[in-house]
Design a protein around this nucleic acid. Sequence first.
DNA 1: ATCCTTATATAAGTAAAACTTACTTACAAA
DNA 2: TTTGTAAGTAAGTTTTACTTATATAAGGAT
Lengths: 209, 209
Amino acid sequence: MNTREKKPSVDQLPKPSGRIKLANALRDLLAQKDFSSITTAEISRTSGVNESLIYRYFGDKRGLLHAVLDEYLENFVEQINWGMKGIEGTKNKLRKFIWSTIYFYDQDRVFSKILLLEVRNYPGYFTSETYEIVKQYTNLMLEIIENGMKTGDIRKDLEARSIRQIVLGGIEHLILPAIINDGPLDPDRLTEKFCLLLFDGIQAKTKKA
Amino acid sequence: MNTREKKPSVDQLPKPSGRIKLANALRDLLAQKDFSSITTAEISRTSGVNESLIYRYFGDKRGLLHAVLDEYLENFVEQINWGMKGIEGTKNKLRKFIWSTIYFYDQDRVFSKILLLEVRNYPGYFTSETYEIVKQYTNLMLEIIENGMKTGDIRKDLEARSIRQIVLGGIEHLILPAIINDGPLDPDRLTEKFCLLLFDGIQAKTKKA
DNA sequence: ATCCTTATATAAGTAAAACTTACTTACAAA
DNA sequence: TTTGTAAGTAAGTTTTACTTATATAAGGAT
């Protein structure tokens, strides 16, 4: 099944122009329609590159998608890593992380849709290079939580991994309606609501026992 | 595009045996492999029903999937509605809701996988009958939250819809690893952790200001 | 009884799209 | 000059969702 070519470790290797043209063509097409209704013939036509080169370079149609995605994700991880630098305090770090995530989802709707709707259903995604990059992102969140537990900022009767999963899923689902309806997204407001819930819970604090 | 037949309102109408055989065949096949790698020829072979009846009865291959899914979801919604009866208190209702959801995800892994990974990427899902049924489920959660705000159990500086999204996404993501790895799932433990976070937040309460 | 309609069923297609293969050209290193 | 490799092309093949034309059987009305 996995007929993908051995990956050219993304950068620095001889990048033939056909490769880039194909990736750009798919990117353009994804802005207009969803992946499954884009044909390889269409990608070939749009790029001006022969159809069979998709298979030479990327193994299959999905491989091309992943290549495009990987490039974007690597940039995203890099930026979020950079953005976290110099921030002190567990809550501040978490808030920044959440804000950045929502911000990026808002910025590039094309990639948001792919990441949220199009990628996970592919059998083999969870063993893909793409998922490895995503892991860098999710591990960063895990580190923040684990560190917060060590410093005593986060209660210890919770599990770091559970918190991470809930937070990541919560963010995704929170922004999903806007992504689907191509509606507006307000990172500041959403982050604030999210952090209120995450830090202190939903319970009204009327009486102090 | 939407060549589905007018829906036979699911129950009570004349159910030809071919219909049932096709649905059962797809269910069986889904236990073995994912939807996209199941062919219509295979469904026909497994069911012993002619391939073209898929199209007569369900419009297209995806229509068959949705029919199978709808039946399961209707049962799920019914059961969760029934299970909520007689429970008093916002927190108790939320806990029961969360527990039930995780429990059902644990019980039927085939449907869990479809719901979590296979359905959302289909363009048109969000206008489908299936999604209407899902809405009954998500609306139930919204009602609990809105009611909790009215009674003063839930703080009012949050938005009911935001809470709902975060909770639903949080649950999904929390169980996702177990679903993907076919690992075990402990509804009691996960519900407890989830509710700790949801009700009181992650912040350690050391000093009282 | 016969005719008409409708549901159920089948076999034999079609069309489109993903993917392959066989071959050519360009170009650089040995 | 030769040789090897990567880039490019054109013309397939195969698979698979979906269609069509046709047949059989079951009532129901006349």
